[in-house]
Design a protein around this nucleic acid. Structure first.
Lengths: 250, 250
DNA sequence: GCATTAGCAGTACACTGTACGAAGTGTCAA
DNA sequence: TTGACACTTCGTACAGTGTACTGCTAATGC
């Protein structure tokens, strides 16, 4: 039988345990931040806490549960303080998206660790806050949910790709390695990639690639995409007064 | 010294090797499709091939390299046949996005395995094709790259989240488990989640959650988001004839 | 026919998550 | 105060992982 997510499991504490779940998740996050998600092992965490490895399993059923804890802690960082939340729903939505963006950028491990939006109190709070941001938006409930999902999709996707690309070893300072550049040149000279070739023309030193990569990783892309997305959502989800554009339902 | 990506490393073949890289990647993909990415091990692959484990390392430097091969093979599925590619750039872009969507949906492991867009011939072909789709679009080169990146971000994000949510064990048939439902009810009754509560009102049986989850996972959301996104991109990236352009929001 | 070496694979090692069970210890009833 | 007992800690062990090292076999070029 499935025991349920960690949130349904009571944390120990009838006597005085040495640690708390939050504390353990905290050092785990620290390790992941500093050394990457793949460096995060139960032994490593236990060492840092000065505890035995199996001690962790008294606080947490599995490593996945611990990751869940980490994830929810991170979701706490994406929350915008209620007092600072913009009134206008578009502005508020963008604001929340930017907060997520920043949080994920700060903790890149979350991307590899992400198990999707879950039940953590903070995950729910994020959902709650997002719903609140749409107060005053002319959407049905179903539309609200879809809009929120779509914006989150975009944010996750951006961070996912920006992060992965950033870690590539084939580049130093966004410039392709010698071997890589050579390989690319050979491939392009096959004639199968005319458009690509036109963009890069003769990229002897890899500067064009460097340019492209900088472009892809840069925050300005995030902003422009977010702008366009919210704009498009506002337009296509708002019931039109005039039936100028064919769209089923409103 | 960094040896470079697998694409720069010549495949064996001066005598007659038993296998090819493509073949190995093929069975790896099969395993991942059937049993999930975490079931994919070098031993498992070797078994399926009827070979020794270390034999694989004659074809591939590391497991990561193998995953790279798998990824690029998948990118091959993303390609739209040139003859079928729409003329209108918006339609073509949507078409490519849908192709990616389908490919990823078919091979969910790719999401966990994704290392970002890389150098594989097929990845580059996807890039090439996307650039081609924008022929006739009124964008500068830089804008083209940004637009493509943004659309890919959205697609990746959607698939990422849709897949992860789909695998949740806390749900059967999209309905929350008994324990989960109880936990949610308790959390909502705390009063900290008014908007959420309004959406779910009194969800005794979990049917509201079921509804919400179906909504979030459903392809219609993908379509609507894609529509809105491309619409917004067309609008905000196209240079306006009149200088009436007061972006910077209101 | 012989030397070379491409290709295959067994063994071994360091590392992972975690099941099991044995210790130590705070808490409460007597 | 003493006992009992459950809470809390953690050492040992095991099955699994990726892969370095090394030796073997057999195809190839002379």
């Amino acid at each position: 039988m499935f025991p349920g997510p960690i949130w349904t499991q009571p944390a120990p504490g009838s006597r005085k345990p040495r640690f708390t779940r939050a504390q353990i998740a905290g050092v785990a996050i620290g390790i992941a931040d500093r050394e990457g998600f793949e460096a995060l092992s139960m032994r490593r965490i236990a060492d840092e806490l000065g505890a035995g490895v199996m001690t962790l399993y008294y606080y947490v059923r599995t490593k996945d549960d611990l990751v869940e804890l980490m994830n929810d802690a991170l979701m706490g960082e994406v929350l915008v303080r209620a007092s600072e939340l913009e009134r206008d729903w578009r502005a508020a939505l963008a604001q929340i998206a930017r907060a997520s963006f920043r949080a994920f950028r700060k903790h890149p491990w979350a991307i590899s660790a992400l198990r999707g939006a879950r039940f953590g109190p903070n995950s729910l709070a994020h959902f709650e806050q997002s719903l609140g941001a749409l107060t005053g938006a002319p959407f049905s409930i179903v539309d609200r949910l879809q809009v929120l999902g779509i914006v989150d999709d975009y944010v996750y996707g951006f961070v996912l790709r920006a992060h992965h690309d950033a870690g590539d070893v084939e580049f130093v300072d966004d410039k392709p390695t010698r071997v890589v550049l050579e390989f690319l040149r050979e491939l392009l000279s096959s004639g199968s990639y005319p458009n690509l070739k036109a963009v890069l023309h003769d990229d002897e030193s890899g500067e064009q690639w460097q340019h492209v990569r900088r472009l892809l990783g840069h925050d300005s892309r995030f902003e422009r995409g977010l702008d366009a997305l919210i704009d498009g959502l506002a337009r296509s989800f708002t019931p039109k007064p005039k039936p100028k554009r064919r769209r089923r339902r409103g």
